[in-house]
Each structure stands twice: as C-alpha cells, then as structure tokens.
Amino acid sequence: MVRLKKILNSQKVAPYVFITPFILTFLIFFVYPLFSTTIMSFQSVLPGQIEFIGFTNYRRLFSDKIFWKAVSNSIKYMVVTILFLIPFPMLFAFFIDKKIMIGREVFKSIFFLPALTSVVVAGTIFRLIFGELPGSLMNTVISALGMAPIKWLKIQKTGFAALIILACWRWTGVNMLYFLSGLKNIPEQLYESAAIDGANGFERFIYITIPLLKPTTIYVLTISIYAGLAMFTESYMLWAGNNSPQNIGLTIVGYLYRQGIEKNSMGYASAVGLILLIFTMGINLTQLRFTGVLKKEEE
C-alpha cells in the first residue's frame, strides 16, 4: 500500500495517471476502431462468413462512379462552405465586437440560434421551403419575380445551393463565436495606436484584426475541412433519407452509410471510411504545415 502510494506520487508516474482517462478513451474509441476498420477493409464481412479478400474492396472502390461522385460532392461542399463560413462570420464577429454596435447581444443570440436548433427540424423546414410544388416558399418568391416554379431538390445546382444555404444558416453563428473569442484576445491599444497613426476602420480590420486572428482562423479552417468532408446529417435530412435524385446530395459519409448499413457491405464501407480518413488527414496536415502551425511545434 505504502509502495503503491509512493509510485503514484512520484513525479515520473503521476503525469501518466493524470492522462490515463484520455489515453483510455483514445485507445478504446479511436485506435481500436481504426485498427479493426483497417482489417475489415480487406475482408468481406457477413454474419458467419468473414473472409479475407485482399485489395478487392479498394479495386471496386476506385472504379466506382458513385463513390467518386460522393467524393466530388464532399470536396465541393467543403470548399464552398469554407469560402462562406470563414470571411462572413469573421466580419460579423468584428461588427458585433464593436462597442458602438447597437443590439450586440441580440445579434449574437440570433446568429447562434440555428446551432441550437435540431438538424432534424431544420432539415424538414428547409425541405418544405425548397419544396417542388408551386406553393412552396422559394417557388412563391421566384414566381413573384416572374419565374416558373423549380423542382429545387431534384436539380444538381439548386439542390446543392439549398444544401449550402442550410449549412451557412446553421454554422455561421458557431464560427462567429470562435472569432469573437479570438477578437477578445486582441489588445485594444493596437487599435488605438493605429487610429492615432491615421488608419481608418477598414485598414484596422485588414492590418490588425485579420493577422492577429490567424490562430483562430487556422482552428476554424481545420475543423471546417473536417466537418465539410464528414458532412452527412444535413444532406440526410434535406432529402429525407440518404438517396437524393441523381445522388446530388450524396457525401462520402453518406456513401459509407449506404454501403455499410443499407447494403450490409461492412468491408467495402470500411474501405470508404479509410479513404475519407486519408483525405481529411492529408488536406489538414498540408494546410497546417502551410500555415506554419506544425513548424512552430517542431521548434
């Protein structure tokens, strides 16, 4: 007992005791699944019939048109959401952070509200807004402008636009909060001295806010890349299921779900999952190296 106490209290052991919870969670919920997914991606997995089939899953994957459709959808979605969900939340945060802004708290809550709304509800509402009948909200709007009703969710471009609008509606507030907390770390004196030097509001935003927000921006970028590539729920809810017309809303995770769950092809789905992991890791590591985050840690 005394010895055990001594060991636990020693400076060498204590840190490991402290990080045990994390290590355990990491091992059980990340390393082990990753390990078994890798094995399963080389197998055909069926009840009572698990056999090793080498690279067959991967060979099928690379000649699978629908898979590449899903990949291109996911990448497009990721790029477009990043284009919208970094500059705009940053700008909104900048305005809301200004003391002279009227109704700051109100705007903050309004922007954040969608994040608290269940995606299931939001998806259903958006589906109705973009309904194909002439009476749906969007069709009423465009017919007021003199255009014919559109079957929004059946056409590649409009369906994708609906998906992007849903994503922006949902995530603007969250990203704005990240930027707001980043803005709080920028010392007021910098703005003051810049103002004394004659910089106007726009210049202060460009030369002080944006550079000093870099760590926040990198963080938001990293999670946006991951979230963009791993998107599933929004599409699933917007099309009331995983099967959109011509697969216009199919994402990599949607395809994983289709293969693994809807078609009970776990091995194939594992291969899809691993490819997704490789994509996300690849893009994010490049991005982090490029923005200098990894370098700093190495030094």
């Binding site: 079957k151 059946k154 099967n243 959109s244 017309p245 011509q246 697969n247 289709r258 809807e262 078609k263």
Partner: peptide, 18 residues
C-alpha cells in the same frame, strides 16, 4: 436488390421520367 433499387430509384427513374 438494395443495390438495384438504389440505382433505379435515384438515377434511372429521374433520368427517364424527369
């Protein structure tokens, strides 16, 4: 069958009928 239903239900019918 799930594969067939999927191809027809998401692609074929849309292409031909729509």
């Amino acid at each position: 069958t799930p594969s067939i239903n999927n191809v027809i239900g998401t692609q074929v019918l849309n292409d031909i009928n729509e």
